[in-house]
Every structure is written in C-alpha cells, then in structure tokens.
Design a protein around this nucleic acid. Sequence first.
DNA 1: AAGCCGGGGCT
DNA 2: AGCCCAGGCTT
Length: 358
Amino acid sequence: MDNVKKFFVQNILKYYSKNKRDLPWRNTKDPYKIWISEIILQQTQVKQGLSYYQKFIQRFPNIQSLANAKEDEVLHLWQGLGYYSRARNLHFAAQQIQNQFGGVFPQTYDEILSLKGIGEYTAAAIASFAFDLPYAVVDGNVFRVLSRFFGIRKAIDSSEGKKFFFDLANELLDKTNPSEYNQAIMEFGATFCTPQSPGCSNCRLNNYCIAYKKNSVQQLPVKSKSINKTTRYLNYFVFIEKDKYIYLNKRINTDIWKGLYEFYLVESKHQNFSLNKIKEHLNQLNISPQKIISVPKIKHLLSHQNLFIKITTIYVNEKISNLNLQRIELKQIENYALPVVLQKFVKVYLNSKKDLDK
DNA sequence: AAGCCGGGGCT
DNA sequence: AGCCCAGGCTT
C-alpha cells in the first residue's frame, strides 16, 4: 500500500477514536443485535432508527423470540420505518437460522450472506463487527469518502464502479482490526464527510484529498441513473359500522406497503374521486351510506412515487360482507400495521372520537 | 442491468 | 423540489 493510502487509513482511525458516537449496537458483540441494527440502518439514518432498535430488541431479545413471532407483529413494530420487506425478511431469516443453523447465528461470511435480506454490505458488517473477519463494508458513506479522497469519478451505480470501490475498500481494510476500521470509515462519512456541507476546511485529510484540492467535493460521488417518479391517485373508503367496527384490507401484492393493512382502496387514473363519484361507487357496491365525510386531499411523497390520497369515511348501519375485508373493532386498529399516511388519519380520527366522548 | 421498495431530514 | 440515508430483492 502506498503512503497516501496509509495516511488515509491512519487518519480515518484517528478521527474515529476521537469522534465515535456511543450507540447501543457498538457496545455488544452479539451478532443478533448487530444484525438487527444493520437491517434497521439500511437506507435509514441513526436518528430515525434508534428508537426502533430499542423497542425491537426489547420485544425480541434473541433469535428464537423473533422466529416464533407472527409476521404481523414484526411488521407492527416496524410501522413507520418504511421498506417493509426488511421486516418480513428479518422474520424469515430468524426462522432460517432456527432451521438451518440450529438456532445459532452463522459465523462465516458466506453463511451470513445466505440469509434473506442480507447482501454484501450487511454480511461484511456483521462478519467484521461480530466476528472480526476481514471483509470491507461498502455503503453510501464509503462510496462518498473514497470517491472524494481518491478523486474517483466512476459511477457508484454501475457494475464497473462498484467493483472498483469494492476492491479499493478491501485493499484499504485494516486486517488487524476490521471492525474498528469499517466503523471508522462509515462514521467519518456519516458525521464529517457528509453529502452536503462537509467539514473540508477543518478536515485532517484535506492535504491529500483530491476532490478538495480540485474543488470537486460537491460533484462526488458520481451517480449515472436518476429515479423515475410516478404519480398515483388513491381513494380510501373507511367503512365504520355503527360506530363500533371498522374494515381493513391486507396488502398482499407486490407493491408498496406489502404486508401492511389499509382501508378499502379504489385507485383512479387521473385524479381523485369527487363526491358524486364516491356516491356512484358506493351504489355499485350496493352500500347505502348514513353519512359521508371526506378529509382534504393528502399529498404523500415516497422516494419513487407521488401519492395523492383522498380518505372518505363512510358510516353504515349494516354489516359489509361482499368486499373481502376484515371487520375489526374500532379500538383494535392500533394493533395493526398501517402505512404512515393512514396511521396519521387514524390518530386524528380517534382523537376526535375521544373528544366527543368527553 | 434495471426497476422497485418508505419515510424523515436537510438544503 | 431534490437529494440523501450503515441496501437488497425481483424481474
């Protein structure tokens, strides 16, 4: 390794020794807890994931408790965190460990990688953090830090670019302490060499940082693809029967929010339903409403979809049995995992109910 | 290889 | 309004 690379490694380690945050998953070698933290932190910042980690570990302190749980409960704990396949895969993988590894968390890179929901990054993270194995992590932080310091303009979302960064990261990896070094480079990216407003002028590495010297920090890392956003119009019918029951649908198709619950949904092509359209639709369903109340149209933004959502509460006096919906008691709804946008609606609705009861 | 999958925070 | 985040799975 040349002197610039040695300089890089030494200063990354020095930065970490002086600036590391005290995070719960850093105070353990338990591969289960490290695994949970890594899944939660995929595409998720520490600030957003920390409370989920705490309650997840409290409810499921070990592999067995997670494997024995129902998927609905795992999703309920995950409610609001997004990318719900992570929760479904976590549950599935816990059962994989029970069935294929005798309930003991696997201790080799290839076995860890074989678990559902664990890719190259997470396998390297667990292998190095829990078992001190020499596998370099390559995540968004590593792409950013390496591309800037070494001035690499290869696209991080191309096959060639990924291989290049992967090889470089493994060359730089401190084999004497892969756990410390892997966490150091990610911490440096997460807290100092940040996407916006990095601390370049005070950076201990800036003498040899190519992006800093060429004034191209803002242009790195390079991404070639841009995401394509689609717009959808969702019309939700919240059926309330005699002020006591509410009707839910479980999303089972390959689409957003798979595994979560929602209300009766009619998707429209160009715009949300008008009141007349709603009445027309209820008529087709053979449902006679006692009262119809819509909330103002909601714009809900996902990373790749813009959702325009109209939620209409339909009060009825008779049981609805022709729509293949689950009929539950109103007060039980807090036990079901809902998308955030519907969870917020329920919270407002239940709060107004509480006010009425006073 | 490309497309898909959430929600929050920052600028 | 656009980009980012301790990425991985499906097609």
